[in-house]
Design a protein around this nucleic acid. Sequence first.
RNA 1: GCCGAUUUAGCUUAGCUGGUGGAGCGUGGGACUGUUAAUCCCAAGGUCGUGGGUUCGAGCCCCACAAUCGGCGCCA
Length: 442
Amino acid sequence: MKNVWISDVQTGQFDGQSVELKGWIKRSRGSSKIHFIVLRDSTGTIQCVGKREDLGDESFQNFKAALIESSVILHGHVNVDERAEGGHEISIQSISIIGAVDAERPFPITESAMVSSDGGETEFLLDNRHLYLRTSRMTKMLQVRSSVFGAIHSYFRQRKFTEYQAPNFVAGAVEGGSTLFEVPYFGKKAYLTQSWQLYAEAAMPALERLYTIAPSFRAEKSRTRRHLTEFWHAEMEVAWANNAEIMQYGEELVRHISTTLLEERSEELKSFDRDLGLIERYAENQYPRMRYDEAVETLQSMGIEIEWGQDLDYSKEKVLTQDFDVPHFLTHYPKVAKPFYHRVDPDDGNYVLCHDLLAPEGYGEIIGGGERTWTEEEILHRIDEEGVPREPNQFYIDIRSYGGVPHGGFGLGVDRVCSWLTGAEHIREVIPFPRDSRRVTP
RNA sequence: GCCGAUUUAGCUUAGCUGGUGGAGCGUGGGACUGUUAAUCCCAAGGUCGUGGGUUCGAGCCCCACAAUCGGCGCCA
């Protein structure tokens, strides 16, 4: 067990006392008679000083020789000292090297390895991801990520949503079939799920308000700073809700995440040079709604070539969002641009009742959602119209046959939200082991 | 799938009109009793991504391949 954490020592609550610290050596420097290390644990760093006259020749020599990322247990006295970063320093009385680092294989993530990456991800850092995770930047990213996950859970649980799990092996597609990962399944074919949604709709009549945070898999050969093949998907489904009400949940959730980060992770965000004023803006302001037609007109007035019926690709999204200072909802897409499960607008059959939430600063779409096609008659019509096979979707059709009700939901790209709110250069920065079309290791 | 770029020591890189590849960090050795990515001295460490070609001579020019990176389409 460990009883004393470095952050607590830095707050001053152990001043003048002797403590036992456990951690890893972050930096090491010194002379023949006095040696300094910066000790790191999950909570922070502190300078520790050892003198030859206090430790004895042998122990001092071992202390001096310990390389970066060696793990140690040390006993020492807590002093207030302005010369040490953080204002506190440990005067070492004894130290044991627990996990020594071999000089033949020193810790490879050196300052120079970090220099040109500037928070980005060089091939070397991606190859050594398992070691890169313990650098201060990645540690902070993982802590911010944890707060985002926590905020999503607390948002839905405060509103009496039930957390619900769907299978990751599935038989059919949600999005376009070309982006499915096919896996062998005892002589048959199965696929990795692209979304929790269809199975969530099955439980909607039971739970009425449900959500999840789970991985989704899409075999897109995308090479962008916004895509992963395995990404974390926060999805929700609500019975008796319309498009406007579902959007309201989405807006509140994103604002709640922003607020939570300001409360819990301001220091970490500042260390990424993130402007907290932007996060406050995302937390405090309402997000405008804009119909697809309006977006198309705006783009056309800017001289962008776009035909009605086209989905908005990223180049157009980017132009559209560059003047946005908060996320914007885009609603009422043409039916032809969206999959069968979106409910056709009863007021105009050319549109579906859906919405995308576009993040500002070029981070792209962070939410996609809307009302579902909910009557048996309409779902059969839409499935046939889109040329989707009925058989693997029979369970989905049954949901409509037995007491279908209006309902809907959305999916939020958790990693994209993390990327946007931290101001990351690339979505890879916010997930411990990123998976893209060219990398599944380490 | 398409377009563009890159590949030199463990890492980050310099390398001019083609003439025997330099440095910083890290590692090892040495000096130094308060360092802040410590400093100073010394050392080891390179078939220059792979294969072929041009040339008296290729890290540099040409061809092919590979890996990686960036962008696009698609999406969260």
